[in-house]
Simulated assay, not measured.
Amino acid sequence: MTKTILFISPTGTLDNGAEISIVNLMKFLVKKGYRVLNVFPDYKVPSQEEYQAELQKAGIETYGLSAVKWWWEEAPGGSPGNHFLRVNSYNKNVKDIRNIIVDNKVELVISNTVNVFQGALAAAYENIKHFWLIHEFPEGEFGYYKEKLDFIDTFSDEIFAVTGALTEDLEKYFPNRKIYSFAPYTQIEPKEGVKTESNDQHRIISVGRLTQRKNQLELIKAFQMLDLAGTELVFLGAWDEDYKQLCDDYIA
């Protein structure tokens, strides 16, 4: 019998490393014969239509759920609506995920960010396993989740963290359990008929959303200080308009 796995996505877009890496994992699991489902917060934006089309093309079943706020109340993203609306939305999202679990006989739920908790609760209610994939250090804008560590510990059958410094950091917070590592993976497809030639020009490429939280302005300043003749600094991804303007103004 085919094992069914449900992934809880952070954004339902392809403009950040966490989502890109997990899409590759979901595609890999489909090729291995698993049935893969995906739940994402449906904000009715064009980038999510692209995300949904990409997953469906790969044989991944998608469920977009309306949400006032998808991440924890204390997480980045502000406080849309009011507390009452957010609580009702969280409750509805947990109930919707429970229904997906029951209707599809899901055997494992995987939350692809420390910032979402709905899948953990739904899995606990339905008495199935839940894995947490953590991409974020518990500091700065994500420092809020230090107060959630007991919850994360209680509602995780296994915890995975990005290989290296993050795994080592989280091991200090969970001394009584094993923190497994994973390497976020992005696949680049070669294009037929395109010939690549070696040259002396080098590029530093930053992939991901241009946002205050990613510190690209600091990268631009460091690049300027290094004064690397013949080297280009390239940014790929979507952006926050205000922060992009800051970067553009500095470059100008």
Rank of each mutant, 00 (worst) to 15 (best):
T2S: 14
T2F: 02
T2K: 15
L6Q: 08
F7V: 12
S9P: 00
P10F: 04
G12I: 09
G17W: 00
I20K: 15
I20R: 15
S21R: 02
L25H: 06
M26D: 01
Y34V: 05
R35N: 11
V36K: 09
V36E: 06
L37Y: 11
V39W: 09
F40W: 14
V45E: 12
Q48E: 13
E50I: 15
A53D: 07
A58N: 12
S66R: 09
V68D: 01
G81P: 01
H83D: 06
L85Q: 13
L85T: 13
V87Q: 11
Y90R: 11
Y90P: 00
N91P: 00
N93P: 03
N93K: 08
V94M: 07
K95P: 00
D96A: 14
K105R: 14
K105N: 14
K105P: 01
E107N: 12
L108G: 07
L108E: 04
L108I: 13
V109D: 03
V109Q: 04
I110T: 02
V116T: 15
F117A: 01
G119F: 04
G119L: 04
A120K: 10
A123D: 04
A124L: 10
N127R: 14
K129F: 02
F131D: 01
F137R: 02
F137K: 10
P138M: 07
E139S: 12
G140C: 05
Y145D: 00
E147A: 14
L149R: 06
D150I: 07
F155Q: 06
S156Y: 08
I159G: 09
T163P: 02
G164L: 09
G164H: 07
A165I: 10
L166A: 08
T167R: 15
E168W: 11
E168N: 13
D169K: 15
L170V: 13
Y173P: 01
N176P: 00
R177I: 06
F182W: 08
F182L: 08
Q187C: 09
Q187Y: 08
P190Y: 04
E192P: 01
V194K: 04
V194Y: 07
D200R: 11
D200C: 12
H202M: 15
I204K: 05
R209P: 00
R213Q: 10
R213V: 11
K214T: 04
K214V: 03
Q216W: 02
E218L: 09
E218R: 10
I220F: 10
I220Q: 03
L226Q: 12
L226N: 06
G230Y: 03
T231I: 09
E232F: 05
V234R: 05
F235H: 10
L236N: 08
W239C: 11
D240N: 12
D242H: 11
K244N: 06
K244S: 07
Q245W: 03
Y250V: 09
I251K: 14
